[in-house]
């Protein structure tokens, strides 16, 4: 097992170089650079643009830029952001942390909702409740997250109108944007945590919905398969109760693929929650990445690519190792 892990780590090096090289190449294929938009300002002289281009090293051939960047990367330096002259590491830590808050919360929601719902619809296959769960699941799979977030925001405004007219209550039930309230820094830590929790509820639910839908469908199919297998019949014949059969004997094997997939969650954790972050103005990775892309602040983009690539590779490794743990048929020695 140890030799396998070492071998895998060595194999990661060319993968990593390939991935970063590709990302760098793509960033070079995009027309223009960080300074192109400044060139359209009527009072900026072309020689200034050229001088800044030299200062930023943007005038060098791209292989030279890549090697330079790789050189500092191996020393743990992700480079400087053009737009703020700050180390990329400083700029991306906070968005990564913020995105993780949202993603962890949505994962908790995902498992807390999807497992019972999946089991429920497998046990009550083809019942009216199963049909409703299926319909809602397909709805969740089909609706784009950013749109669903807008719908929920609109709903919150509609509910406010209703509560105002009915009860004279004129506050929104949940915040519609941002991660914290404007008085956040004046509050004690427990109130700060609560504030973030309340702000994260709606976007985390939106992120969880598409996952819940897919997860429920797969778990339902797995459960149905196991519930009709021989060992379950044996368990029932032994006189085990329905609850024990369902949760101890059927759910455990049915959930194996998800356990093995936990490694894949790592990159998802820092991959951010996508466009939902833009809609609710969550200061996570997606807005940072999109802003860096639109400004062509390439080292910020590449910094995020590097972190994602490393986590993806480590995540895959963990997945493979977990498979060996949960499935005795798999051996790496």
């Amino acid at each position: 097992m140890f030799a396998y892990i070492v071998r895998r780590f060595i194999n990661l090096i060319p993968t990593f170089i390939g991935a970063t090289l590709l990302a760098f190449l793509i960033s070079q294929l995009v027309p223009g650079d960080f300074l192109t938009q400044r060139a359209l300002e009527p009072n900026v002289r072309p020689e200034t643009i050229e001088r800044l281009r030299t200062q930023f090293g943007l005038d060098l051939p791209w292989p030279v830029q890549y090697v330079r960047w790789m050189g500092s990367l191996v020393q743990g330096d992700l480079g400087l952001s053009f737009s703020s002259n700050q180390p990329v590491t400083n700029l991306i830590i906070s968005p990564i942390r913020n995105s993780m808050v949202l993603v962890v919360m949505s994962l908790v929601m995902l498992y807390a909702i999807a497992i019972p719902v999946g089991v429920f619809s497998a046990v009550r296959q083809y019942s009216a409740a199963d049909q409703i769960v299926s319909a809602v699941s397909y709805f969740g799979l089909a609706i784009p997250n950013f749109f669903f977030a807008q719908v929920l925001i609109l709903s919150l405004f509609v509910i406010r109108s209703w509560t105002r007219e009915t009860f004279g209550y004129n506050d929104l039930l949940l915040p519609v944007a941002q991660m914290t309230s404007s008085d956040y820094l004046d509050w004690p830590w427990y109130r700060q945590w609560w504030d973030i929790f309340v702000h994260a509820l709606m976007p985390a639910f939106v992120v969880a919905t598409s996952g819940i839908a897919g997860f429920t469908r797969v778990l339902r199919a797995q459960m149905i398969e196991y519930l009709s297998s021989d060992f379950i019949r044996t368990a029932r014949a032994k006189g085990l109760g329905q609850r024990s059969v369902t949760y101890k004997h059927a759910l455990r094997p049915a959930i194996i693929p998800f356990v093995a997939g936990i490694g894949g969650i790592l990159p998802v954790l820092i991959g951010g929650a996508g466009l939902v972050e833009i809609v609710v103005s969550w200061p996570g990775i997606t807005p940072t990445l999109l802003e860096a892309i639109s400004r062509q602040d390439i080292y910020v983009v590449l910094g995020l690519v590097v972190i994602t690539t490393i986590l993806l590779m480590v995540g895959n490794l963990i997945s493979d190792l977990l498979l060996a743990v949960v499935d005795p048929r798999i051996r790496y020695d």
Binding site: I153, P175, V176, E277, I278, V279, S281, W282, P287
Partner: peptide
């Protein structure tokens, strides 16, 4: 307040 889009700013204003 830093917002990621004018839509988010509008929502905050309406809120």
């Amino acid at each position: 307040q830093t917002v990621e889009s004018t839509d988010a700013a509008l929502n905050l204003y309406l809120a």
